[in-house]
């Protein structure tokens, strides 16, 4: 497994995929083509689990995002839930003043009961 890094742009978040077991996605998410943009990320996660790895910490700190990003995050959490294990955690990090980021996190947590899904206010 290789590490992967995608630089932040005006419309897309900074993404780091660390083969030692960590994913960070920080920033806003308004890609022109959301599914194309996140395709390498989804692929990376799939092959990460295929390689037999278990331990994974997913840190997401998304300030603003569009509806297709929301759909994409559901897909990502689906993928995580399919490979759920005790060493897999998701941290949804948000600014205490950003109500909509918090509410989005609550919605995800509610939908993915099996995941260790933590809401963390900054």
């Amino acid at each position: 497994m290789q590490n992967m890094k995608i630089e932040e742009t005006k419309y897309t978040p900074a993404i780091e995929l660390d083969a030692s077991g960590a994913i960070t996605i920080v920033g806003k998410s308004y890609p022109e083509n959301t599914f194309e943009f996140y395709a390498p990320v989804m692929k990376w996660v799939e092959s990460y689990f295929e390689s037999g790895a278990k331990k994974l910490a997913v840190n997401m700190e998304i300030v603003y995002f569009n509806s297709s990003s929301s759909k994409l995050f559901f897909d990502l959490f689906d993928l995580l839930e399919e490979n759920n294990n005790p060493e897999l955690i998701v941290n949804w990090i948000y600014d205490a003043e950003n109500e909509s980021a918090m509410e989005a996190g609550e919605d995800f947590k509610e939908d993915f009961e099996k995941l260790q899904f933590n809401l963390k206010a900054k």
Binding site: Y64, N66, S67, S70, K71, F74, S100, D107
Partner: peptide
């Protein structure tokens, strides 16, 4: 249901923004 949820979520965020 998920699609509806995404729509609802987006609408809420858009109104806020």
């Amino acid at each position: 249901k998920r699609q509806n949820k995404i729509l609802e979520q987006s609408d809420k965020r858009q109104r806020k923004e």
